[in-house]
Amino acid sequence: MALTVTHPRLARETLDIYFLEVRARLLEIAATLDRIDRSARPEEVVADPRLAFVREALAVLQSAGPERARRIEELYSLK
């Protein structure tokens, strides 16, 4: 018996189930960026490529689908 290829629930059900998890993770990212800003000598990480990656990944989240997760993985991959 094959697993269904598509997610077996309606989009609204999926949103209902995962919305609070998504909200919590977005707040965690926001709070972490705030924490970095409040840390000593924040100017030392302004040009850090990891923060550039975070900004690019957030842009992927704002873009239309599909496969946002794959695109973020590729952003973080050495060429």
Binding site: A2, L3, T4, V5, T6, A69
Partner: peptide, 14 residues
């Protein structure tokens, strides 16, 4: 776990 099940759905369990 969530992403793993997403991958099962997208790429099949075989």
């Amino acid at each position: 776990p969530q992403r793993a099940v997403d991958m099962m759905e997208m790429y099949g369990p075989e």
